[in-house]
């Protein structure tokens, strides 16, 4: 019993310390604040768990006192608007690998809790001319260096960061939809109604970097998953694609990767004749395409054919 008491005291002091530390750097409600009411009522289970305290000591805590730490907003709005210093994110999409499995799309939709029916990533059946072979073309937001959407936004709700990413601040967007009219890539979607989100997602603290949760009456779009980049991980579409179609990376490091293969960006784009969409508009996209060589088309299954015919 005695050890139990000490560990409890230690646990409380550790959480309070952590709470103070968090309160010092972020305003608003503090998720680390121990809920004293529950602490009093929780009954020790007797099963002990070893933990590393904030001052580096290994401590033992009764399992009953453990509760999951609520998710914190990763960065402040100000930092999210500035972007990650020294980075210039680019994406390379290898059209010769795309089989329209749409794993990118479903991963993106799931991770951003997008309204059913809407998609931030679209996979277009494309065909240059009547007698040329068709191919699949996935599109994300192009994160243009001369973004037409940012130019027209009246309230600075959509902005361009130093790392090249174009984001939307759903807490500021007034829903005028001028950016949707301005975007030649039709990449933006609008939240026409309240999203029917599960409670734990709806209650997540909103950040422009996660774009979650989406808000009624505001515009949404592909965000290049800067929250993943901050963690040093790849965007969800990149890691979800089994064919390695998407390669994501940093122009300054001159490297892009799809998770299993890594390329020197400049060489890849040079050797495989990379290009960007609608170059003539002068939008300077950050997304490069590698041409759809070795097309194994016409489209294989019937559904795909129909879809192709329709569009």
């Amino acid at each position: 019993m005695k050890t139990n008491d000490t560990s409890r005291r230690e646990f409380i002091s550790a959480t309070v310390l952590a709470g103070l530390a968090v309160a010092g750097c972020s305003s608003g409600k503090n998720p680390f604040q121990p809920d004293t009411a529950t602490l009093e009522t929780v009954k020790p289970s007797g099963e002990m768990v070893k933990l590393l305290s904030v001052n580096g000591e290994v401590i033992e805590v009764d399992k009953a006192f453990l509760k999951p730490v609520p998710e914190l907003p990763q960065v402040s709005n100000q930092l999210a608007r500035q972007g990650i210093a020294g980075k210039k994110f680019v994406m390379v999409i290898d059209l010769s690998r795309c089989k329209s499995l749409k794993k990118c799309q479903s991963a993106c939709n799931h991770m951003h809790s997008i309204h059913p029916g809407q998609n931030w990533i679209k996979v277009y059946p494309q065909q240059e001319a009547d007698h040329t072979a068709p191919y699949w073309q996935p599109t994300t937001c192009m994160h243009c260096d001369e973004p037409p959407c940012v130019k027209v936004c009246p309230v600075d709700a959509t902005f361009k960061r130093q790392d090249g990413i174009v984001l939307i601040d759903s807490d500021r967007c007034i829903g005028c939809r001028f950016c949707m009219a301005a975007c030649p890539y039709s990449t933006r979607v609008f939240n026409w109604e309240e999203l029917n989100l599960p409670k734990e997602i709806a209650e997540k603290p909103y950040s422009c970097e996660t774009s979650v949760p989406q808000k009624k009456g505001t515009v949404g779009k592909c965000d290049f998953c800067p929250d993943m980049a901050r963690k040093g991980e790849l965007p969800h579409c990149v890691s979800a694609c089994p064919n390695g179609v998407f390669m994501f990376g940093d122009l300054n490091e001159d490297a892009v990767t799809n998770g299993s293969e890594t390329f020197r960006f400049s060489e890849l784009v040079r050797d495989k004749a990379g290009y960007r969409l609608m170059e003539d508009l002068g939008t300077k996209p950050s997304v490069y395409y590698l041409p759809p060589v070795n097309r194994n088309f016409p489209f294989e299954n019937k559904e795909e054919k129909e879809e192709n015919k329709k569009s």
Binding site: K151, P154, V155, I174, G175, F178, F190, K216, T218, V219
Partner: peptide, 20 residues
Amino acid sequence: MGRPDRFYNLFIHARLQSPI
């Protein structure tokens, strides 16, 4: 407007390069 409740943003966050 999708968010008429944020109409005031047009004044406090106005950016002069937008035709709106």
